[in-house]
Design a binder for these strands. Structure first.
Lengths: 191, 191
DNA sequence: CAAAATACGGAGTGATCACTCCGCTTGTCA
DNA sequence: TGACAAGCGGAGTGATCACTCCGTATTTTG
C-alpha cells in the first residue's frame, strides 16, 4: 500500500492519500464497490491520476477500505469479549453488524466476497476468530446452544446483513427477524 | 415481450426465441444477470441482433428469466400447500429454495432486487402470497410460532439464499444453518 | 533561493457493454 | 414457384470503466 522506499511521503501526498481514503469510504458505503474511481477522485477533490498513484489498482483501494472496516468490526467484537456479558455479547455484536449493513454496502460486500476476488484473508479470519470467541463465551454460560459452530453463525450473520441491505429493513422488521434467528441460536429441546 | 401484431411468429423466429431463453437461463444461472448479451447469443447460436429483436432491452430478457423462475417456485409452493403436511411444507419449501440458490444466481438476484431495478412485481408478489399461505398453514397446526409474519420469513429466506450462494455452502453447513433458523421459527417459550 | 526530487491533474487509451442498422436469407402464401 | 414480408447476422456506435503518461506545480533540500 505505502511505497516500499524508506523515504517519507511528501506533505501534500500524505494529505491527498487521506482525502482519497475518506472519499472512498463514503462513496463505497453509499454505492458499493462498483462505484467508479472517477467519482471517488471528484469527491476527494483530486485527479484520477492521484488516486491511482496511491492505490495502483482499484482492488487495492477497495481492499484498503474493506480491511479498515473489518478491523473496526473486529475491534468492536474484541471490546465486547473483554467487557461485555458473555450471554448477550454475541447477540449485541450481531445486531450492530446488521445495523451497519443497512447503510454500508461495503460491510455486506466484504462478508460475501462479492464477485471480484479481494485478497484480504487476514481481517476476515480475524473477524471469524472474534465471532468464535463470542460464540464460545455465550455457550459457556449456556446462552447459546452447544451444537452451534462458527461456520453456521457466520453464515447467519452474512445472510442477515445481506437481507437487511436488500430489503431495506425497517427497525421493526430488523428486530423481528433477528429475534427469530436469536431464538434459533438459544439452547432448546430440539435435536 | 411478444410483438403486439396479431400475426403469429415465423417458425424460425419461434425456434430462435426458445433457444435464446434456454441459453439465457443457463448463462444467467451460472454467471448471474451481469453476463453479457453476446455470451448468451453465442450460447444460443444466434447473433446479438436476434437476441435484441426478441427482447429489446437486457432488462426485458432478465425479467423474462426471473419471472419464469419465480413462477416455477410459486407453483412448487402451491403444490406443497395443496398436498403437503402443513407442519413441514414451509420448511420443505425453504430448503428447496436454498438448494437452488447455490447453483442458480438468478434466484438470489431475483429475491434481492440486485441493483438494476426490474419491474416484475407480480411474480414476486405471488411468491410472497404463497409463502404467506405456507406460513399460515404451519401456524394453524402449531408448527411455527404465531408471532412470525411474512416479511421476516421472506427476509430469512432471502438471507439464507444469499448466504448459501456467497459461502458455497456444503450440504452439511446448509443443514446446520437451516436447522437453527427453523428452530427459531418454531413455537417456544420466548417473548 | 535555486536545483532536484516528488507529486499532481486530467486528457488519452484500450477494453467491454448494451444496443442499432442494414444488406442478405429464409419462410410464407397466393 | 415466385414475390414479398419477416427475420437474421454481426459490424458499427456511443457510453463507461480502469488505468497510463507526461507537462506542470509543489515541496524538500543544500
Amino acid at each position: 500500500m505505502t511505497p516500499e522506499t524508506g523515504r517519507p511521503l511528501r506533505a501534500d501526498a500524505r494529505r491527498n492519500r487521506a482525502r482519497v481514503l475518506e472519499a472512498a469510504e463514503a462513496v463505497f458505503s453509499a454505492k458499493g464497490a462498483a462505484a467508479s474511481t472517477e467519482e471517488i477522485a471528484r469527491t476527494a477533490g483530486v485527479g484520477v491520476g492521484t488516486v491511482f498513484r496511491h492505490f495502483p489498482t482499484k482492488k487495492d483501494l477497495v481492499s484498503a477500505i474493506m480491511t479498515a472496516r473489518l478491523e473496526r468490526l473486529f475491534a468492536d467484537a474484541d471490546a465486547l469479549i473483554a467487557e461485555g456479558d458473555p450471554a448477550t455479547a454475541l447477540f449485541t455484536f450481531f445486531t450492530r453488524m446488521v445495523e451497519q449493513a443497512a447503510s454500508k454496502k461495503t460491510v455486506v460486500e466484504a462478508l460475501g466476497g462479492e464477485g471480484f476476488e479481494l485478497d484480504i484473508p487476514k481481517p476476515i479470519e480475524a473477524l471469524r476468530q472474534a465471532v468464535g470467541a463470542l460464540l464460545a463465551g455465550a455457550q459457556r454460560v449456556g446462552a447459546v446452544r452447544a451444537d452451534a459452530a462458527v461456520p453456521e453463525v457466520m453464515a447467519l450473520l452474512s445472510g442477515a446483513c445481506r437481507a437487511a441491505l436488500d430489503a431495506e429493513w425497517s427497525p421493526d422488521l430488523q428486530a423481528r427477524t433477528l429475534a427469530i434467528v436469536f431464538d434459533g441460536l438459544r439452547p432448546g429441546r430440539r435435536r
